[in-house]
């Protein structure tokens, strides 16, 4: 084993894995919350909906489209002043979080919006006809009825986030991407890159498996 991968230091590898998991987990949770809120707002302020409001819908939609279109590696650079402002550093896992969340939340918001649009309008109307308040409609109709779409959406987003963390690693955020780039690529230690890649693949497959499992469990249609 050690002869096949002579340059791999397992403590470093483990530490990098934990950093990747940390960045992914925090950003997935934050993206889920922020993206769901943005997605709900996009849906509710759209034409013919409960909070129909053209200006707000336009502003959110523009924000989502712009941040979804900027390539992530550029977004990190663009967000440096913002990150410095709130995190006070450009190095380490926490420094990567603002860029990860701002990059992924708009992407997820669109998926949330699509999921919400798939809900039968009649069901929302039925809730209204029973005298439901808007918060009741959101918590008891919109979110539960779109839950499989929300979960499969966050699965896709989480996988994208894992690869974003690798990119963020290149500019000094730590994690497996950082390790693969600095130790593996720049020092020509192919085995380090290979092992880091395999670990990332394992993480991705695990996320996919869990996401698929929850989605099928939730879907009673």
């Amino acid at each position: 084993m050690a002869e096949l991968i002579p340059n791999v230091v397992w403590e470093e590898m483990w530490e990098a894995t934990l950093e990747t998991l940390y960045m992914s987990a925090i950003s997935v949770v934050a993206t889920f919350i922020l993206g769901t809120v943005l997605g709900l707002l996009l849906f509710l302020t759209a034409k013919g909906n409960i909070w129909e409001n053209k200006p707000i819908n336009f502003i959110i939609s523009a924000f989502v489209n712009i941040f979804r279109s900027i390539p992530f590696i550029i977004l990190i650079v663009l967000l440096i002043p913002f990150t410095m402002l709130i995190m006070d550093t450009m190095i380490g896992e926490n420094a990567a979080l603002p860029a990860l969340i701002i990059g992924a939340a708009p992407f997820y918001a669109r998926m949330v919006e699509i999921g919400l649009r798939e809900i039968d309008k009649g069901v929302i109307e039925a809730a209204k006809s029973m005298g439901a308040k808007t918060p009741t409609i959101i918590w008891k109709v919109l979110l539960p009825e779109s839950m499989p779409a929300l979960v499969s959406g966050i699965t896709v987003t989480a996988i994208a986030l894992v690869s974003y963390t690798a990119m963020a690693g290149v500019i000094g955020a730590g994690g497996l991407g950082n390790l693969a780039y600095l130790e593996g690529f720049q020092r020509s230690q192919g085995d380090v890159t290979l092992v880091a890649t395999i670990i990332i693949l394992i993480i991705v497959f695990t996320i996919q498996f869990i996401g698929d499992y929850i989605t099928t469990k939730l879907d009673k249609r």
Binding site: D120, V123, A126
Partner: peptide, 17 residues
Amino acid sequence: ARQEISMIFQHFNLLWS
């Protein structure tokens, strides 16, 4: 008022979840 004026629908409009 709506709690006293119920409605049923052509496509039932039940919550599948």
